[in-house]
């Protein structure tokens, strides 16, 4: 379980999160929606301890990230996989090294064993026969899949997705959505995704939370989102320029 309690984060004068509360239960898929620049990536980075909140705390499986040592933080991170918006594959490493880097660095496993695990994960994300390629040789959708394979390599309990469908065409995006659902079912992982892609949110979410003005202003099932009379949510899901939401350019 992941608990976010009263998170405040600012960069200089720019207050990004203003007392955000959110709980993510075991095994569920929560999608946080919100405008570009509203702090979705900051939220994910805070959950994994890349950003420390000015106030509030992050609790993962009953351990607070507040005041823990770097070593303890690294231990907790072993339970978490993250898929980055730009995939963030290591350019200088081949696909199998990207996926196996954790095994290479933490366990010094023999190459053969790492290759076996890598192939297994690549099969899971539907991408056989690319283990010797380099990231520069892959398409956007393939990079995303390799990024997902890397995130699930060490059998994490939680997987976080930052804009999993951004920059992909609608067909590839839908396949990535299906993959996220499939992995969640097969591997029983707890999933948190952030996105501004409302179609993707409907498709993969058990629960959708909307981030606006530094707080979660709505939290409910996809059905509840569709029937809500919250004007902010209505404006966002309808994709209308005019309405109560004033931020953004």
């Amino acid at each position: 379980m992941i608990g976010l309690k009263g998170l405040w984060i600012s960069f200089g004068d720019n207050e990004v999160l203003k007392g955000l509360d959110l709980n993510i239960e075991e095994g569920e898929t929560v999608v946080v929606i919100g405008q570009s620049g509203c702090g979705k990536s900051v939220l994910l980075k805070t959950i994994v301890g890349l950003i420390s909140p000015d106030e509030g705390e992050v609790i993962i499986d009953n351990i607070s990230l507040k005041n823990i040592s770097r070593r303890e933080l690294y231990e907790i991170r072993k339970k978490i996989g993250m898929v980055f918006q730009s995939s963030a594959l290591f350019d200088s490493l081949s696909v199998w090294e990207n996926i196996g880097l954790g095994f290479i660095e933490h366990f010094r496993m023999p190459r053969k064993e790492i290759m076996r695990i890598t192939r297994e994960k690549l099969m899971l994300v539907g991408l056989p026969d690319v283990e010797d390629k380099y990231p520069a040789e892959l398409s956007g959708g393939m990079k995303k899949r390799v990024g997902i394979a890397r995130a699930i390599a060490m059998d994490p309990d939680f997987v976080l997705y930052d804009e999993p469908t951004a920059g992909l065409d609608p067909i590839i995006a839908d396949r990535i959505n299906n993959l996220i659902i499939e992995l969640q079912k097969k591997l029983k992982i707890t999933t948190i995704a952030v996105t501004h892609d409302i179609i993707s949110a409907y498709k993969i979410a058990d629960r959708i939370a909307m981030l606006y003005d530094g707080k979660i202003i709505f939290d409910g099932t996809p059905e509840e989102v569709q029937s809500t009379d919250n004007p902010y949510v209505q404006q966002f899901i309808a994709g209308e320029g005019e309405g109560p939401i004033s931020g953004g350019i």
Partner: peptide, 18 residues
């Protein structure tokens, strides 16, 4: 610098690699 702006350094951190 490229690793930083393309989040590769964050990715290392998350994999527990210092």
């Amino acid at each position: 610098g490229t690793m930083r702006v393309t989040e590769q350094i964050d990715a290392l951190e998350i994999m527990g690699i210092d």
